[in-house]
Amino acid sequence: MQENPESFVPESAVIDIGISEDALSLQQAYDVVTAPAHGAVTTFVGVVRNLNQGRKVLGVSYDAFAPLCLTTFRDICEKAQLKWGPLKIYCWHYKGRLDVGGISVILAVSSPHRDESYQANRYLIEEIKHRAPIWKMEHYVDGDSEWTEGCELCQDDHSHKKL
């Protein structure tokens, strides 16, 4: 019996976000976004590297303001879905100390075709770097530790209000 293509329902959008003090899992990210109607899955994995601006790095400690972080992640993901359609998105960041090679962030995006997935994934990481309230302290081989310089947060474009 021949199947009617009209009976295939498009995948619904998914947003899976979080801040974790446990190790992040690429398999978990893949499992969340994979779907029969989505022919493309892109992943971005942020990893602690062993050198920054000429200094040998042992590890990095990540600090995060979790409530605002989650609000920001959701806003970024929703904007990506508005721009590129009903994507399935996994967006988790690590909080705590990681050694070199440790995974700090995983972004996975699935879509019917590759172009939306690639573009949305790049958009997500750039927005997170500029907007998410996350900080990192690098720990160096010489025993020193320093907070890294980051991006100054823009003020929200909201009207004057009392809080």
């Binding site: 942020g46 990540y62 995060a64 303001f65 605002l68 960041h93 700090s104 962030v105 990481i125 997170i128 770097k129 500029h130 907007r131 998410a132 309230p133 996350i134 900080w135 990192k136 907070w147 890294t148 310089e149 980051g150 991006c151 100054e152 947060l153 809080l163």
Partner: peptide, 12 residues
């Protein structure tokens, strides 16, 4: 109420 002070961010 509780507020937070956020220095320049460096996630990712």
């Amino acid at each position: 109420r509780e507020l937070a002070i956020l220095p320049p961010v460096a996630g990712g």
